[in-house]
């Protein structure tokens, strides 16, 4: 079953004093794939700035822009309408011998290496092998995802944008970004190529058509099991019609919805809202 979802992601930065120059990249445009068609997408910027639109190394659409008029607020809004597909079952056919084949390991080497957000950690290495020793890589992915959910308490405010998987794991709590990074550490430790995936999740299983609900930007993981298979370690539900995929990369740093620099006053307030409407 497929859904049609309208998304609206607003990032609103308010500065303590006037900003004179600001350089930014927005990654807020859903990506087209076999399980998702993008019917409409747009990024708007206030104050207005003519963006450069490009597709980056990870196949993510980027809006790059600079703002040179003095401003106290910067508002970036990503809007889209996408058609999403229902959940797939994890591919059980792929065996360890396929995933560990030297050419596969070389092809996905950058998705097997540690990163600042998903670093090497000896304690997690042993844990990965305890949790993930399974008959098939698909079972290992399911076990790892379940283990992450059992080891971590979902608690906003306990981690920051810069928190690594290991820091979050040590304190036993975090948000979807941390759940995803911890999953990446374990899967990569098992030799399963894995990528950080960001997007949106519609919160209602039985969403009424036309009703707009508050959501949030969301993150999950895709593992290579003969093909890329998504898994959502934060809520343990299959990735399906309620998930809208925006960007993929090695970790959060590759997909940050808004990344930028500015000359001027301190950031006083950041407000991020995501609104999701099932339209069909």
């Amino acid at each position: 079953m497929s859904w049609r979802i309208a998304t609206r992601h607003v990032s609103s930065y308010r500065y303590a004093s006037t900003v004179f120059a600001s350089y930014n990249e927005a990654r807020m445009t859903p990506v087209a794939s076999h399980r998702q068609s993008v019917l409409e997408s747009h990024v708007s910027i206030r104050p207005t700035a003519p963006p450069l639109r490009y597709v980056d190394y990870w196949a993510t659409t980027v809006y790059a822009f600079d703002v040179h008029e003095p401003h106290d607020n910067l508002v970036v809004t990503g809007s889209s309408v996408v058609e999403t597909a229902g959940a797939e079952v994890l591919n059980e056919d792929a065996g360890w011998e396929l995933v560990h084949r030297p050419d596969v390991q070389d092809r996905y080497s950058e998705l097997l290496l540690p990163t600042p957000y998903a670093p090497l950690e000896p304690a997690l290495r042993d844990l990965a092998h305890d949790v993930g020793t399974s008959e098939t890589p698909a079972q290992a992915v399911a076990s790892v995802s379940a283990w992450v959910r059992s080891a971590m308490r979902y608690e906003p405010g306990t981690t920051q944008v810069s928190t690594s998987a290991v820091e979050a794991w040590r304190q036993g709590s975090g948000v979807c970004q941390d759940f995803a990074h911890l999953t990446l550490v374990l899967l990569r430790e098992l030799g399963i190529p894995a990528r950080y995936t960001s997007g949106y999740l519609h919160p209602r299983v039985a969403a009424a058509i036309g009703e707009t609900v508050k959501g949030a930007s969301h993150a999950w993981v895709e593992a290579w099991l003969g093909s890329w298979q998504p898994v959502d370690p934060t809520n343990g539900e299959p990735v399906g019609e309620r998930h809208v995929t925006v960007a993929r990369g090695r970790d959060y740093a590759d997909v940050a919805p808004l990344h930028g620099l500015y000359h001027g006053g301190a950031l006083e307030d950041l407000e991020v809202t995501v609104e999701l409407t099932r339209v069909a």
Partner: peptide, 21 residues
């Protein structure tokens, strides 16, 4: 242009659905 550059960024914070409604 003033002091060193500062960062515009945001954390991805979504959690489990609050209500399965």
């Amino acid at each position: 242009l003033g002091p060193a550059l500062a960062a515009n960024q945001q954390q991805q914070q979504s959690g489990p659905p609050c209500s399965a409604g």
